[in-house]
Design a protein around this nucleic acid. Structure first.
Lengths: 117, 117
DNA sequence: TTTTTATATTAATATATTCGAATATGTTAA
DNA sequence: TTAACATATTCGAATATATTAATATAAAAA
């Protein structure tokens, strides 16, 4: 039950909610993409992702310079809750705006130079 | 979106989650029933219910001596989330135990003497 | 009216959270 | 190796939240 209240605590902060909603909509995102899309300083993104990892809500995978985060698919409750939110995303302009920015995510890989990742 | 993170904040505390889960499963409960079922002091129940009322998550209705609280049916997001939790209530022994105690709720109306309420 | 019961509020204190600044670590590229 | 970049960690200040005890209000019963 602590696991459950912790999930809600995770969702109770705007930045963290935005991160999780983005990860629900996009298979994986790295720290700098999240920082760029949300316009939130990198350390804050990183701190929150660390908490999520400690809570077993996300996993991380390094790909060269970048570390990509994605939701743990095993956590059904979290996925169900995020589905509830995303199903109603039209009611939340900020979440919709974040989603729109996913298409431009490469922009936030500052060193991106067409190498295919 | 603040409304949304506030809902999650509401759910992120064990006592508050238990209150909302009870109200999801039972049309209405008064303060002393909640206090008795959860074994949590009355002022704490009352304070949390006041916050819920301020957030438009519950409504209250006086019936003689007692004040009964119930969920606002308009808040679809909250109801959906509570459904997710209750659908998996078997995973949360404390929530299941609370639910079982609903049958004895009259016990917590200390002045109950068979008058039909 | 006085007492009892149910609920709400307040004040004091303890605890937790958030955020930014500074810094550290790890990786890649030159 | 050094420089540049991506990510992580630590710490302190400001703020928010939780908890308890004491007390207030309001309705019902005596």
């Amino acid at each position: 039950m602590n696991q459950l209240t912790n999930i809600f605590k995770g969702l109770s902060d705007e930045t963290r909610l935005r991160i999780l909603v983005l990860l629900y909509q996009e298979e994986e995102l790295c720290v700098c993409e999240l920082s760029g899309i949300l316009e939130v300083p990198q350390p804050r993104i990183s701190q929150n992702l660390t908490k999520f990892r400690d809570m077993n809500l996300v996993i991380d995978k390094r790909k060269e310079k970048y570390i990509y985060y994605s939701l743990k698919k095993e956590n059904k409750i979290l996925l169900n809750i995020l589905k509830d939110v995303v199903d109603d995303i039209g009611s939340y302009p900020k979440l919709s705006a974040d989603k729109a920015k996913i298409s431009y995510k490469e922009k936030y890989l500052k060193q991106y130079c067409g190498k295919g990742y």
